[in-house]
């Protein structure tokens, strides 16, 4: 019966070629999986899989190279943008992207991301912000919210001593080398669709040689937040969205022209 049905049906959602068949090590409901898939779909749609080189971070996504069906390397903690710079400079015809979490990009790798963006390196950064260190077991991240309890801020993040959560999309957006910087969220279906559009635009910006592009993506960590996957989506909406407003923080005119194209 199924075959009969497929005959007059069209495939509207399929497994992307840019993902390997491996099941990820991510916890149930972890939105890393969604973001991986969106990147893979975009790379498929742009037809650049065979000339894309990815750079994995240290953090939960350290094994990203097992899941992306393309050339990949694994950077030292925080150094993915430097590594991507090295790759892109000697292989300017390749599509190069980094995939980084909040500890990787906004703490230990702050210097590298700022200078890479500021140089206008023709790479794309996918920045996954879930307000916590996942891999090491739920410590305070640079993006942890004020008052948020983590294993290293057991009484909640005290901004008097730990400072304020880093707003990376705003910070990177200020830099002249950044052509397109946006903050999106994969907390519901419309948000996921908008995030995919943003990722696609970010890669198109690189392909058009317009400058550095970054998509910050609000994501979840149900395990370390101590809630169910479904509750995690709500927790992020209630707690992260007010502090991390969605939207573009940098769109240069050339990118705007690119957006206007059908």
């Amino acid at each position: 019966m199924a075959v009969e049905m497929i005959a007059d049906m069209e495939l509207v959602f399929k497994y992307p070629e840019s993902l390997t068949p491996r099941v990820t090590h991510y916890c149930p409901g972890c939105t890393h999986g969604v973001i991986h898939r969106l990147i893979a779909e975009v790379i498929d749609e742009l037809g650049v899989r065979e000339r894309t080189i990815g750079v994995a971070p240290v953090g939960c996504a350290v094994l990203a190279y097992d899941y992306f069906n393309m050339d990949f390397c694994e950077a030292a903690h925080g150094r993915a943008p430097a590594m991507a710079t090295g790759i892109k400079r000697v292989s300017p015809d390749k599509v190069v992207f980094t995939y980084q979490g909040d500890g990787d990009l906004a703490a230990i790798g702050t210097s590298e991301i700022i200078h890479t963006a500021n140089r206008g390196e023709l790479i794309t950064t996918i920045f996954v912000n879930n307000a916590i260190y996942g891999m090491t077991g739920g410590q305070m991240a640079p993006t942890t919210l004020p008052g948020q309890v983590t294993t290293s801020s057991p009484r909640g993040r005290d901004v008097e001593t730990a400072g304020w959560p880093m707003k990376m999309a705003e910070l990177i957006g200020m830099l002249s080398g950044a052509a397109y910087v946006t903050r999106q969220a994969v907390l519901d279906v419309p948000g996921i669709r908008r995030t995919k559009k943003a990722i696609k635009l970010a890669f198109q910006v690189q392909l058009a040689g317009l400058g550095f592009s970054m998509v910050e993506i609000l994501s979840t960590c149900s395990t370390n937040w101590g809630v169910s996957p479904l509750e995690a989506l709500d927790w992020a909406k209630q707690n992260m969205l007010p502090y991390y407003p969605l939207g573009d923080t940098k769109v240069v005119d050339e990118v705007r022209a690119l957006m206007a194209k059908p």
């Binding site: 049905m5 497929i6 007059d8 049906m9 069209e10 495939l11 509207v12 959602f13 399929k14 497994y15 992307p16 993902l19 099941v23 990820t24 991510y26 409901g29 972890c30 939105t31 890393h32 999986g33 969604v34 898939r37 519901d188 279906v189 996921i192 669709r193």
Partner: peptide
């Protein structure tokens, strides 16, 4: 769209 593990393949008439 929301599945983190690419469990679904979807067809539409």
């Amino acid at each position: 769209t929301i599945c983190p593990d690419v469990v679904f393949t979807v067809y539409r008439r």
